[in-house]
Write a protein that binds this DNA or RNA. Structure first.
Lengths: 253, 253
DNA sequence: ACAATATCATTCAATTTCAATCAACATCTT
DNA sequence: AAGATGTTGATTGAAATTGAATGATATTGT
């Protein structure tokens, strides 16, 4: 991809997002760090954005005006969850209707989706908060009883609403995975997750390797309910084989 | 997550919440206490918030959520809103199921309810955020299409969910009040509000005096739909008489 | 008032990001 | 075709950020 095209697209991305990190840009354009840095330098000279440690911020932060004179920044993210999230987000295509359930891994996926044009349905308040200001994402919440600990909406109203929709894709976290299938520890959560599974055409499960082997209290679904499982490289081959023999595609990030 | 992004999102969160505790922020961003503290330091220098023991508070103390339809309020009006909110909150009794619709005046009422034991049903994200951590309040959200400007859930799913419940009390803000009744400017909002009116046994309307006399585009309900209207002392006696002759109790704060 | 608990500011090693440099490659010119 | 020019991606040491640990300070409950 040519520099001019990259810069044009960065301009566009920064419009719909208040912040972009360098790593995301490199991945998005399949370009080297150096090239993206040069692009950001140029765009900053053109006053199209402001460079900060770790990426760049919009020059017109919607509400948060007059702030970035001191802006100094950084971060680290790339733990297993981040890598899993990136891998899973790569499976999502523009224009799809995607259900996201609660859980921190799925929340990480949500953050990776911010550059796509999607219709998102979720019962998670943190995910809603992280997506609500993105103009390229249409957001629908399930409603229901609000669990203050998990910060998700659950219960009959949530399930009824889920039952009334159809989605192209479900991205779900899970409490535990064993030969017996997927399981979880919270009755209400299980109810919602089963509804989500029922109305989604394709199911992606995100779960780091620590979720495997331990048995959850309440079964959610058999392994074959998933089409894709995204995990990390620490996953024992025993479980990889188990999943594949159930017809599940396994991706390791 | 990069520091710049965290800080942007903290700015965003503090607008709707008045207070955020450190632990919530750490969990939300999957960042260490140290990092969040540094973020708060920077944001305080930038006057975006004020650090307090245990977290941070908004720099505009009683700044409610953004307005429902009409954005900017003078400080005098805000003061009136606070008094209206206190008066309205005084009408709520422990143990009731209360529907709160969106809008800045209702959000102010929500904050006054924090010491009561209630079941709250709302379609407003700012209200949900301000009540979610209170242990004495059971919170249910309506679900539905999320309107990013008003930060409320609306549409068919919202109305269907409202249709399935019964509430002791509805506290509702309104765009405008005239002899013709209550009205508003947003079709989806009106649909939800009519559902709320249908399922609540008692209806309290909160509206400062500027809402009177101007005609909204879309009618919501006749004046007689309300049981109580709480307004401020600037309300012309003409409207007080009008409401009372429709069988509405009028309280001025 | 006191002890128990929670939060805070500071420090430091590990990690991440940065800017500068350079060789390889592509594109354009003559 | 050869040379000039500009772009790219990798490398490197420097600078900045992060998370954990520590002791100090503030708040809470009795």
């Amino acid at each position: 991809m040519k520099a001019a095209e990259r810069q044009l697209r960065i301009r566009h991305l920064i419009e719909s997002r208040d912040f972009i990190d360098l790593e995301t840009l490199c991945r998005e354009f399949d370009a080297s760090e150096s090239s993206v840095r040069r692009d950001l330098d140029i765009l900053e000279q053109e006053k199209a954005l402001k460079r900060v440690y770790g990426g760049a911020v919009s020059v017109h932060p919607p509400q948060a005006a007059r702030a970035f004179d001191y802006a100094v920044e950084s971060s680290r993210l790339s733990d297993e969850k981040g890598r899993i999230a990136q891998r899973a987000a790569g499976l999502v295509e523009d224009g799809q209707t995607v259900i996201l359930d609660g859980g921190s891994t799925v929340a990480a996926v949500a953050r990776e989706l911010s550059s796509k044009s999607l219709h998102i349905v979720t019962n998670s308040l943190p995910i809603a908060e992280s997506l609500e200001s993105l103009r390229n994402i249409e957001l629908t919440l399930t409603g229901g009883y609000f669990d203050p600990r998990l910060r998700v909406m659950l219960g009959p109203f949530c399930e009824q609403m889920l039952g009334a929709i159809r989605a192209d894709l479900l991205i779900m976290g899970i409490g535990s995975i064993s030969a017996a299938g997927f399981s979880n520890n919270n009755t209400l959560v299980v109810g919602s997750e089963q509804k989500m599974l029922a109305v989604a055409r394709k199911v992606i499960i995100v779960a780091d390797h620590t979720k495997f082997g331990r048995g959850g209290v309440i079964p959610v679904a058999p392994l074959s309910a998933a089409h894709v499982v995204v995990s990390d490289t620490g996953l024992a081959s025993e479980y990889i084989d188990l999943l594949r023999s159930s017809g599940v595609e396994v991706l390791l990030a």
